[in-house]
Simulated scan of single mutants.
Amino acid sequence: MGSLKESYLESDEGRQENLADALGISWDELSQLDYTVTENISNEGLLYGYFITFSSNCSAEILSKIAGISKSRTISLSPWIFERSYEDQYALGAIAQNIDHRASFSNEMESSVRLQNLQIDDHATRQLLLRQTFISIIGALETFLSDTFISKTLSSEHYLQQFVRNHPEFKQQKISISEIYDVSVKIQERAKTVMVNTIYHKLPTVREMYTGTFSIDFPNISNLQKYILVRHDLVHRNGKTTEGRLVNVNDKLIDELRNNAVTFVEELTNKLERDFDDDLPF
C-alpha cells in the first residue's frame, strides 16, 4: 500500500462530497473528522481501492453512522469513489428531484419557440440567436435521454443489473473471486459514474444502453443524426463545416429539428411506458 496525500482530497470539494456520500454522513460531519487515506495497491500496481482510517479523537457519534467501519476505525472503499466530480453529484441530485422528464422536455421546447420568435433586426445577432436556439434543442434532448435513463435504471434493481451486465465498461473489467463482494457492494456507485459521464448526443451509444438495459426497440435515430452533426459544427467549428462552409441555420431548419425531437421523445416515452408495464420480471 502507498500513502495518498491528504491535501489532494482536502483541496477538492467534489472529492470530499463523494467521500461523505460513500460514508453515509454529511459534508459538515466529514469536515469534523481527522483521517488518513491510503491506497490499496496490488503487487502488479493495480488500484484495488482506498482505506480510510480515522484518528482516535474523532467524534464517536459521527463514526457510529459509518456502516462497515472496523474497531480500528478503518473502512475500505472502492477505487472509483473519487471519480465523480462535484458537478456529477449535482447532476444526480437534480435528476432525482425531477420526476417528469417528459414534461421538462416539453417546457424546454416551448421556451425554444419563444426564443426563436424574438424579433431582432440586426442580421448577425439574429443568426446568433438561431444558432443558440438550435443548440438548446439538442441540449434538451440530451438532458431528456440522460435523466430518463439514469432515473429509470436506478429505480429498479433489475434494470441496474441489466445495465451492468451489458455495458462495455463492465464487460471489460476483470476481478478475482476474492474481490466479488467488495465490488458488488459498490457497484451502484460505479454505475452512476458511468451513466453520468456518458455523452448523450452520441445516439448509437445511447441506443445500445437503452436496448441493453430496458430491452426495448429504440426509435430510429437516422433523422436526428444529421442534426447532431450540425450541432457539432455550431459548437466546435464556430458554425462552419469541415470544408469551411458556413452552416445556414434558419427557422425552417429549427422547426424541423424541434418536430423530429418531439416525435422521437414521444415515441421513446411510449415504448418505455409500455415495456415497463409488460416486461418487468416481477
Results as ranks from 00 to 15, higher is better:
Asp217Pro: 03
Ser176Ala: 14
Asp217Phe: 07
Ile180Gly: 08
Val185Met: 13
Phe144Arg: 01
Leu154Val: 09
Leu154Ser: 08
Val206Arg: 00
Gln162Val: 04
Thr153Cys: 15
Leu160Tyr: 07
Gln172Leu: 07
Ile216Pro: 00
Ser176Ile: 12
Val196Ile: 15
Phe214Tyr: 02
Val196Leu: 14
Ser156Asp: 11
Glu208Val: 09
Ile216Gln: 01
His201Leu: 09
Lys186Asn: 15
Ile199Ala: 12
Glu157Asn: 11
Met195His: 00
Ser155Thr: 07
Val185Leu: 14
Thr213Glu: 06
Thr205Tyr: 08
Lys202Pro: 00
Ile180Ala: 14
His201Arg: 08
Glu169Gly: 09
Tyr181Ser: 13
Ile177Ser: 15
Val164Ala: 01
Glu189Phe: 10
Ile175His: 10
Asn166Gln: 10
Gln161Met: 10
Ile177Thr: 15
Phe218Asp: 00
His167Pro: 03
Ser176Gly: 13
Lys192Met: 12
Gln172Arg: 11
Ile175Gln: 10
Asn197Ala: 12
Glu179Cys: 04
Phe163Asn: 01
Ala191Thr: 04
Ser176Trp: 10
Tyr159Gly: 04
Gln188Tyr: 09
Thr213Lys: 03
Val196Gln: 03
His167Arg: 05
Leu145Ala: 02
Asn166Gly: 09
Thr213Met: 05
Glu208Phe: 05
Glu142Lys: 06
Asp182Trp: 06
Phe214Met: 05
Lys152Ala: 07
Leu160Ile: 11
Tyr210Phe: 13
Ile175Cys: 09
Thr193Trp: 11
Phe163Tyr: 11
Lys171Trp: 05
Ser178Phe: 15
Ile199Gln: 13
Glu179Val: 07
Lys152His: 11
Lys174Pro: 04
Tyr210Asp: 02
Gln173Pro: 02
Asp147Thr: 10
His201Asn: 15
Thr213Phe: 06
His158Asp: 08
Thr205Glu: 14
Asn197Trp: 08
Glu179Leu: 08
Ser155Glu: 14
Leu145His: 02
Asp182Ala: 14
Tyr159Asp: 12
Lys202Asp: 12
Pro168Gln: 08
Leu203Ala: 03
Ser178Tyr: 14
Ile199Lys: 10
Tyr181Ile: 13
Val206Trp: 05
Pro168Trp: 07
His167Asn: 15
Arg190Ile: 05
